[in-house]
């Protein structure tokens, strides 16, 4: 347990180091916030990368949330089809579900290379679009899993009751199913958002020159050597991650309470 936090602690401590030598001398010489100031420097700072990351994460989560949520609904209402066209649709959707789950089952590296190859075949310039497509692909499974497992615990007769009381299928979904699934959709989105903000491997292959996301920037800085500025950045990112986890925990404990009453 302590070992889990040792490296993190080191990063946090050194982010307040006053030692300005950029070489590999890692000695703590005093407390300073200079690296944090440095962080927001408009030229050498990380602001622009943060914005890129946020933008990519926003669109990816949006797309994957919509597709994943309605996808989960569709998968749960999959019924044996009798007509020929219905059967091939069913088969296609079964295949689609398998494919949708792949990005989190195979090594990210393969996904990255496959998408890189596909994009260069399609002559898509590497940039925000390719990043969003890639991130959406690996965000879908997270949303799909959380929403599907929530929907499957819902009593199907609740939605039927709504229909029975005069709601059209769409209204029944909007007034009953969606509000009940909302916590799961939200926590799925949170997870997807964290994964998108965090992704390095896949982004590594499909990013463009102008679209260096935050993790990519961290990698390129870290690869060269130990730069104290990265320590500060990492501390900030750690703080954000903890905040997200706390939010997630609050959400799930709120849901737990709802169940208890």
């Amino acid at each position: 347990m302590l070992l889990l936090y040792l490296p993190i602690l080191v990063v946090v401590v050194f982010s307040f180091n006053a030692n300005t030598t950029r070489t590999a001398t890692m000695t703590f010489t005093g407390f300073s916030l200079q690296w944090y100031k440095n962080l927001f420097d408009p030229i050498s700072g990380f602001g622009v990368h943060l914005v890129t990351s946020l933008e990519v994460a926003f669109w990816s989560v949006l797309f994957s949330c919509v597709m994943g949520t309605i996808g989960a609904v569709g998968l749960l209402h999959r019924k044996k089809q009798k007509s020929l066209s219905g059967r091939s649709l069913e088969r296609f959707i079964n295949f689609g579900e398998q494919a949708a789950m792949l990005p989190i089952m195979i090594p990210e590296l393969i996904m990255g290379i496959a998408l890189l190859a596909l994009f260069s075949f399609l002559r898509l310039p590497m940039g925000k679009i390719t990043l969003v497509i890639a991130h959406t692909s690996f965000c879908i499974p997270y949303i799909l899993i959380t929403v599907k497992s929530r929907l499957s615990t819902l009593d199907p007769s609740i939605e039927e009751a709504a229909r029975d009381l005069g709601a059209s299928p769409i209204r029944a979904f909007l007034t009953v199913t969606l509000p009940l699934a909302a916590p799961a959709v939200l926590s799925g989105c949170l997870l997807a958002f964290a994964m998108s903000m965090d992704d390095f491997v896949i982004s590594f292959f499909v990013n463009g020159a102008e679209t260096t996301t935050l993790p990519l920037k961290v990698y390129s800085s870290v690869k060269v050597g130990v730069t104290p500025q990265v320590n500060a950045l990492c501390t900030v990112m750690l703080g954000a991650a903890f905040l997200l986890v706390a939010m997630g925990q609050l959400l799930s404990s709120a849901r737990g309470k709802e169940k208890k009453i």
């Binding site: 039927e160 009751a161 029975d164 005069g166 509000p179």
Partner: peptide, 20 residues
């Protein structure tokens, strides 16, 4: 006719009240 258009209503076995 779909259920929402029938003048027939159901009381479900487990009541199926909307929990929210």
């Amino acid at each position: 006719l779909p259920p929402e258009k029938r003048e027939v209503n159901t009381v479900f076995q487990n009541y199926a009240l909307f929990p929210h």
